[in-house]
């Protein structure tokens, strides 16, 4: 084994991969969230579709996409490898185990949380990414603008999906899992890379908590918004609360 493989398959090496990919995926979450905020724009999906067309066709983005695939791939693979190793480290369990008295639930259940997110990810990718990129069965935008008429109307696909109750439920459940996953994962990523200092650790910790809440709440707000307050074309329904009405019309 060369020193590289030896390092990366050591217990700390695997954790470094988890941490680097995890923090990279955090940056992806930010971009994904910011981009998806276009869904809230009150223009019948024009901005969102333009954005998704750009993301689907731009060569730089398409290249980075592969990095993203690798990021997910390694994160998931290492998670399984580590879990297996860690389970094997204690062959005989305890009759009584009160870990809740010495640690946070999220920290101990990253695997379960990650698995829920993985299931969601498969459904999510199939529903939007697969259909847009490979199946080609999405409706087209149409309209007078010749340049955009041929764009996929992903907006419509999203909005209609967000009117299926079980889909919304899965989505929200996944975002809660993601929140908890990040609650531990963000701080943990820094700890694994040794980026721990008495002065900055509290900052990293609370930044992680804020990040977890904002990202998961941000993503969860989308299906909830469309499910609760819009019709199947994305228009705000008349019986939505006044607050929603006024916010929606502002954009």
């Amino acid at each position: 084994m060369s020193w590289i493989t030896k390092t990366l398959t050591s217990s700390i090496g695997r954790k470094i991969i988890m941490s680097v990919t995890g923090l990279f995926l955090c940056s992806f979450l930010v971009i994904h969230l910011v981009g998806n905020l276009q869904l809230f724009k009150h223009d019948g999906g024009a901005a969102f579709n333009a954005y998704s067309h750009f993301m689907g066709t731009n060569p730089i983005i398409r290249t980075i996409e592969w990095v993203l695939v690798l990021g997910f791939g390694f994160h998931i693979y290492e998670a399984f490898a580590l879990t297996r190793r860690n389970k094997a480290a204690r062959g005989h369990g305890y009759a009584q185990w009160k870990a809740e008295q010495n640690s946070e639930w999220t920290s101990r259940n990253m695997g379960i949380l990650g698995t829920i997110i993985l299931i969601f990810l498969i459904v999510h990718l199939y529903n939007f990414f697969w259909r847009a990129r490979f199946a080609g069965d999405l409706p087209k935008m149409g309209g007078v603008d010749l340049e955009t008429a041929d764009y996929d109307n992903l907006y419509l696909a999203v909005v209609s999906s967000f009117h299926i109750w079980w889909y919304v439920l899965l989505y929200v459940a996944a975002q809660i899992s993601l929140g908890y996953h990040l609650w531990h994962g963000f701080r943990s990523g820094f700890q694994t890379l040794g980026l721990n200092h008495r002065k900055y650790m509290p900052l990293i910790k609370y930044a992680g908590y804020v990040f977890a809440v904002v990202v998961s709440a941000g993503f969860a707000s989308m299906p909830l918004y469309f499910f609760l307050f819009t019709n199947e074309r994305g228009d705000v329904v008349s019986n939505a609360p006044a607050f929603i009405q006024s916010v929606a019309s502002a954009f």
């Binding site: 860690n86 094997a88 480290a89 870990a99 010495n102 640690s103 920290s107 980026l195 650790m201």
Partner: peptide, 25 residues
């Protein structure tokens, strides 16, 4: 054959002499 650290923190919480997690970082 020890497991890998997943930054749970049970170790430091149960350490009778208070060795800090900062050491793992």
């Amino acid at each position: 054959g020890f497991g890998a650290c997943s930054n749970i923190g049970s170790c430091a919480a149960e350490c009778p002499v208070g060795i800090s997690l900062e050491n793992i970082a």
